[in-house]
C-alpha cells in the first residue's frame, strides 16, 4: 500500500488481484444482484486508489479495505431501499465497455453440481436475509486473515458485540437451514 501511495500502479494491480475474491465474496452475498456486486467491488477498489494518500499504516490494510467495502455496501443498500428499481449505474456507462469474462469453476458431475447448487442457493438466500450487521460479521468471519478484533474494527463495535453478532447469525442460519444441512452437509 505504501508503494501505491507513491503512485506505483503495478503494486495497486497486485493488491486488486490479491483482494478481489474476498471483496467480491462479501458484496456478492450482501447484494441481490451479481452484476451490481461486481460494479460495487470495482467502485471499492477505485475508492481505495483515490483514498491511498490518506491511508496510514496504523491498521491492517485488509481492515481498512473491508471498512471501505462495508460502507459502500451500506450506502448501496440504503440507496436501493429508497429507489428499488434503479440500477447502480446506467447500462451504457464506461464501466460496461469491457465485457465480463468468468472462469468456469465446475468440477463435479451434473447431479452433484445441481444438489450443491441448490444447497448454496438456500444458504445464500438465508445469509442475504440476515440483518446487515450479522451478515457482514458472519461473512468477514469466513475471511482467514481477519481476526475477531479486525472484524470488530470494520463493524465499529466492541469485540463482545461482534462475537454476539456472529453467534446470532449462526443460530438463525442453523434454524432456517436445518432440513438442508442434515441432507446436504
Amino acid at each position: 500500500m505504501l508503494r501505491v501511495q507513491r503512485g506505483d500502479d503495478e503494486a495497486f494491480a497486485t493488491l486488486v488481484e490479491r483482494y478481489q475474491q474476498p471483496v467480491m465474496n462479501l458484496l456478492y452475498r450482501s447484494l441481490p444482484d451479481a452484476t451490481e456486486a461486481e460494479d460495487l467491488a470495482q467502485t471499492v477498489f477505485v475508492q481505495v486508489y483515490k483514498s491511498a494518500p490518506r491511508y496510514r499504516p496504523t491498521a491492517r490494510f485488509s481492515t481498512w479495505l473491508f471498512t471501505i467495502a462495508r460502507n459502500l455496501c451500506l450506502n448501496e443498500l440504503r440507496r436501493r431501499s429508497r429507489h428499488p428499481a434503479e440500477p447502480l449505474e446506467p447500462a451504457d456507462s464506461a464501466t460496461d465497455q469491457a465485457p465480463r469474462q468468468y472462469p468456469d469453476r465446475r468440477t463435479d458431475g451434473p447431479v452433484e453440481s445441481l444438489l450443491q447448487g441448490e444447497l448454496e442457493r438456500k444458504i445464500e438466500e438465508a445469509i442475504r436475509d440476515l440483518p446487515e450487521n450479522q451478515r457482514t460479521a458472519l461473512l468477514l468471519c469466513q475471511q482467514d486473515e481477519l481476526s475477531y478484533e479486525d472484524i470488530a474494527k470494520v463493524l465499529g463495535c466492541s469485540l463482545s458485540a461482534t462475537k454476539s453478532l456472529i453467534h446470532r447469525a449462526r443460530e438463525t442460519l442453523k434454524a432456517r437451514l436445518k432440513p438442508y444441512l442434515r441432507t446436504g452437509a
Binding site: D9, F12, A13, V16, E17, Q20, Q21, M24, N25, L27, Y28, R29, A34, A37, E38, A41, Q42, F45, V46, Y49, A94, T95, A98, P99, R100, Q101, Y102, P103, R105, Q116, L119, E120, I123, E124, Q142, R170, L173, K174, L177, Y180, L181, R182, G184, A185
Partner: peptide, 26 residues
C-alpha cells in the same frame, strides 16, 4: 454442519478481466 456448508460455498464469480477493468477505471 453449518461450518462445513459455509466452507463449501463457491467463491463469488469474479470476471477474469476484473483487475484490468479496475485499472482502466482508475
Amino acid at each position: 454442519a453449518l461450518t462445513e456448508a459455509l466452507r463449501k460455498l463457491s467463491p463469488a464469480p469474479v470476471p477474469s478481466n476484473f483487475v484490468a477493468r479496475v485499472m482502466a477505471e482508475v
